[in-house]
Simulated scan of single mutants.
Amino acid sequence: MALRMGRSTGSFAPGSAGERMGPAVVARAFQALPSAHREILAETVFRDRSVNEAAASLGVPVDVVKLRVYHALRALNTALDAPRASR
């Protein structure tokens, strides 16, 4: 099962159901992530690969992919929240 971007908000960002985050904001947050986080999100989210496919592509165990995705999504969420905190 591949990770998918939430359909209700149009972004990975938490918030009210109707709130949308611009693609430029998400792109900046993504670019601010460490390369390991960008790599795992690119494999699973952007290339729409399952954790099994990403594990085979990267040459790591499935559990490692799952752990990396978890940490990468948390880091992305933190990066997306950073501009909001300064409002």
Rank of each mutant, 00 (worst) to 15 (best):
G22Q: 13
S57T: 12
S35I: 09
A82R: 10
P61M: 02
L33T: 01
V60T: 05
P34H: 13
V64R: 13
T9R: 15
R28A: 01
H37R: 01
M1C: 09
D63A: 13
D81H: 14
F12I: 00
A85S: 01
N52K: 08
A17K: 12
R4K: 07
K66H: 10
G59S: 00
A55P: 10
R38D: 03
R68H: 09
A54M: 08
S16L: 13
A55E: 07
S8G: 08
A72K: 07
V64N: 10
S57E: 07
L58T: 14
D63V: 11
S16Y: 10
T44V: 03
A36R: 12
A27C: 03
T9W: 09
L80W: 06
R84Y: 09
L73E: 05
V64C: 01
D48H: 12
A85V: 15
R87E: 14
G6R: 14
T78D: 09
R47F: 03
Q31P: 02
H71M: 10
L80K: 06
R87C: 09
P83T: 03
L67P: 04
V64T: 11
P34V: 03
A82N: 06
S8F: 13
A24K: 11
V62R: 15
L80N: 02
D81W: 11
M1Q: 09
R68G: 05
E43L: 14
R7D: 12
P61L: 04
R49H: 09
L33V: 04
H37N: 10
P23Q: 15
A36G: 03
R4W: 07
A55L: 05
M21S: 05
F12V: 00
N77Q: 02
E43R: 05
V69R: 14
A13W: 04
V65Y: 00
V69T: 10
A42R: 15
T78W: 07
D63I: 05
H37A: 06
A24C: 02
R47C: 05
D48N: 15
D81P: 03
G10E: 12
R7F: 08
D48Y: 08
